[in-house]
Design a protein around this nucleic acid. Structure first.
Lengths: 209, 209
DNA sequence: AGAAAAAACTAATAATATTAGTAAAAATGA
DNA sequence: TCATTTTTACTAATATTATTAGTTTTTTCT
């Protein structure tokens, strides 16, 4: 249901308005909770009436869906950026787990939207889901490469799924219990080194003993 | 805001009606999602009008809160029942992780209500939260006992928190991706033996090497 | 059966997302 | 710059939500 083409100038204006609606939506989600987003509240913050928003999005779900895609794109960029500094396989593991949690702390609105189900009735569109799977699947690609350097009976997918589950578990518990504490601190935040050491012990590098 | 006392007969009727409201609420939550519970839908299933429900509960939140307490009570009973069959420390670990996931699969409505945040705006009451912490804290008690039998530098609390985070992570991923598969199956369900073996390796029993 | 209590009802309020139809504003072509 | 067309914002209305107030019906007890 995209609008018909129009002049570059109109497109620019439209894009800017759309962007500022998304910014306002994120601000509300951060301040009042992801599910507290309402068309009226959003319109109020934009100095508009609610129905005007429907010139830019066909529904509230479409706003959520757009932010869902933004969230995964930002998550992908976040991890890739951190990965640039990696010094090897060991560091990859740490970066992935810390990166998962730091993304959640820096973008709690997008994190919840992408990795939890804070909005009843909202289901990401097929295309958005495909995007998210694509991003997560990159991890599997890498896993089958670095697996050769590890001394373990686990398959690449098992390794990745285990790491995802642990990163998610730690992050969910941290956000549920001590969301105000920065990464590395608190009951669950401080467990990152613990689980890293457990995982390293279970999957030693070939060459280590 | 509890009602004044009344005759035993009235109390019985009242209790029975209250219970069947809770049953209907759980059925709706299972069929349509935890957050899809509405007073009108609940009343419809009870062959009532919505306002009549307020004779039994002061608000929809109070219904959720009551089920939250029920959920933790049932979770506690579930784990305790499984623990009766335990053959030792190793089995305790397995039972706790499997028990967490099997409870989630058998009672998805209560699991989500107790361990996730599926209902925007619903915050368990102080008393309900106290109950839930009390139940979880029993794990810490036990941890400080069995810790002596383990060869690890971790504190009892660290062990318990790690196990909770892993159990939660596996369960959340399993429910999000393959909720139809029974315990032990699927990408994440089948990882239980994997994480058990990883944890056992990281915390060997004294006497083992 | 008649009085008291309990539990149901109807009607109404405020908030929600969304649609239809209309007015205002902006962009475009002469 | 003016007239036309397109774009954007508006008002009004609908259906659904939780909840409250006030009333009537049903149940309970003597």
């Amino acid at each position: 249901m995209t609008k018909p083409l129009s002049s570059p100038r109109v497109q620019r204006n439209r894009k800017a308005a759309t962007q500022s609606i998304l910014d306002a939506a994120r601000a509300i989600m951060r301040e009042e909770g992801v599910a507290a987003l309402s068309m009226q509240g959003l319109a109020r913050r934009m100095d508009m009436r609610a129905p005007s928003l429907y010139n830019y999005f066909n529904s509230k779900a479409e706003i959520y869906d757009t932010l869902f895609r933004l969230g995964f794109a930002m998550f992908d960029a976040h991890i890739k950026e951190l990965m640039k500094t990696s010094t090897g396989l060991r560091d990859d593991l740490r970066i992935n787990i810390e990166g998962y949690m730091s993304f959640a702390l820096e973008n709690p609105d997008l994190y919840q939207l992408c990795f939890e189900r804070p909005v009843p009735g909202f289901v990401p569109s097929k295309e958005s889901l495909a995007l998210s799977f694509g991003i997560l699947n990159q991890s599997y690609q890498r896993a089958n490469q670095f697996k050769k350097q590890l001394n373990t009976k686990l398959t690449g997918q098992q390794i990745v799924d285990t790491v995802i589950a642990i990163a998610h578990g730690l992050t969910a518990m941290h956000l549920a219990n001590e969301p105000h504490l920065p990464i590395g601190q608190g009951r669950f935040g401080s467990l990152i080194p613990v689980v890293l050491s457990i995982l390293e012990q279970a999957m030693p590098l070939k060459g280590e003993s």
